[in-house]
């Protein structure tokens, strides 16, 4: 195994994060703060508590997931798309590095960035609400698995995208609606029965539900099912990326 290669790819990608630290951190922190001001204080104070949890507190896990998902995808997809775009990917392709080492470097870095952001967002939230985490280890497990799974998903998008528009289209048209409709800001039990059933097909529901359970022991679906669904999604991404590597999809002609 070429550990040095994984190391330099990881370091290179993390360097990009530190160099743009202000943008990387400021935008999720500001948007989280805005959500809290609007939903938590202004509107939230008029919304009754859900399952005995104040609305401001209830949205913390969903809000964290929203940033986590979009940032994981954005970071990982850009990380692999940019060298493809400039052509500098030739070097990685001609180096004594296996595809899985390349993957570990890029996805590992993107997942690390998302994890750091997740912690920063939770820290920001603690200024607005009194945060309580009943199962911190489960919380970290869900956080880490989500970071890895969606960074992998972002990596796939970055490989697939042939231009900057395509890079944006999946996060904008698929991920954002799925997050908003996946019970990030409400409990699924508040929906009419038909829409409750529809929501069960939204993978984000399981992420948010499991993550929320680790905070409040309140969930829309069982925590076991949440965990299984994240692992299934992770597995599906791994299979897809393996297929892409095997065929040289959009990397090798």
């Amino acid at each position: 195994m070429n550990l040095r290669a994984i190391g330099v790819i990881y370091k290179f990608e993390m360097l990009r994060f530190w160099n743009t630290l202000f943008q990387s951190v400021a935008s999720p922190v500001i948007s989280t703060a805005l959500y809290f001001v609007v939903f938590g204080s202004a509107i939230g104070s008029r919304i009754e508590s859900i399952d005995g949890i104040s609305y401001g507190l209830f949205i913390v896990p969903g809000l964290t997931m929203l940033s986590l998902l979009t940032q994981s995808i954005a970071n990982a997809s850009f990380g692999i798309f940019f060298p493809k775009f400039t052509g500098s990917i030739y070097e990685v392709l001609s180096a004594p590095v296996s595809f899985y080492e390349v993957l570990s470097g890029y996805v590992g870095a993107a997942a690390s960035k998302s994890f750091i952001l997740g912690i920063i967002i939770l820290f920001t939230a603690s200024f607005f609400v009194e945060l309580k985490i009943l199962h911190p280890y489960w919380m970290l497990t869900f956080l880490i698995l989500t970071c890895i799974a969606f960074s992998l998903f972002g990596f796939i998008i970055g490989l697939w995208a042939t231009n900057f528009e395509k890079l944006q289209v999946i996060p904008m048209l698929v991920i954002t609606p799925l997050v908003f409709l996946g019970g990030s800001f409400y409990s699924v039990s508040m929906l009419p029965p038909f829409w409750q059933t529809v929501t069960l097909f939204n993978p984000v529901l399981y992420l948010v539900s499991g993550f929320r359970w680790s905070f409040f022991e309140v969930s829309d679906v069982s925590v076991g099912l949440s965990l299984i669904m994240i692992l299934v999604f992770l597995g599906a991404c791994l299979v897809t990326v393996s297929w892409m590597f095997k065929t040289g999809y959009r990397l090798k002609q």
């Binding site: 070429n2 040095r4 290669a5 190391g7 330099v8 070097e91 180096a95 004594p96 590095v97």
Partner: peptide, 14 residues
């Protein structure tokens, strides 16, 4: 400097 160090590392060299 960073890019040539990257290249060297990519090829597994110390």
């Amino acid at each position: 400097w960073n890019t040539i160090n990257f290249s060297r590392g990519l090829f597994g060299k110390k």
